[in-house]
Amino acid sequence: MTTQILWAGFGGQGALFAGQFLANAGLIRGQQVSWLPSYGPEMRGGTANCSVILSDDAIGSPIVLQPDVLVCMNLPSFLRFGACVRPGGKLFVDSSLVEERSSRADIAAYYIPAAQLASDEGMAGLANMIFVGKVIAATGLFDEETVTAAMHKAIHARKQHLLEMNLRAVELGRNYREG
């Protein structure tokens, strides 16, 4: 079983961190993992993205071209990558920043106003972790225990308040129902 994830957004939205979080969760679960960031000049204010692969087998190319899971935290990412999702794959879009909807019938699309939710809940900047929660809920990639363990790995114990806030953001995403 291999899951290929492409996570894209503006620089500063935490797309790369979210990808690392998933890779760490995979590592905790004993999977093979790889994480590859875009490292071009687009990172400065433009689009930033990362390829994450979680697999039970050795990973070949770390470049994700046809994601099973695509997260688009902004419009340029949606326009650039929306068509690449593997048939049967899942697309996650921040509907507070992207008005467009995917016209594809062969994928499942989830529209979450993550940036708005984060701002409403006093956790601005944690839209990425709201998406982590939603992605995990929709894909069943990780159980709650793995998520908590990965969070402890990602955030130092000295920054306890951030740990709780991040876990709360994941929870918010997990329970979010479109409607």
């Binding site: 690392q20 890779a23 590592l27 093979q32 993992v33 790889s34 994480w35 590859l36 960031p37 490292y39 990973i59 770390p62 470049i63």
Partner: peptide
């Protein structure tokens, strides 16, 4: 190369 330098693996 740049891929191997930038990518993360366990």
């Amino acid at each position: 190369d740049g891929i191997l330098g930038q990518m993360m693996e366990p």
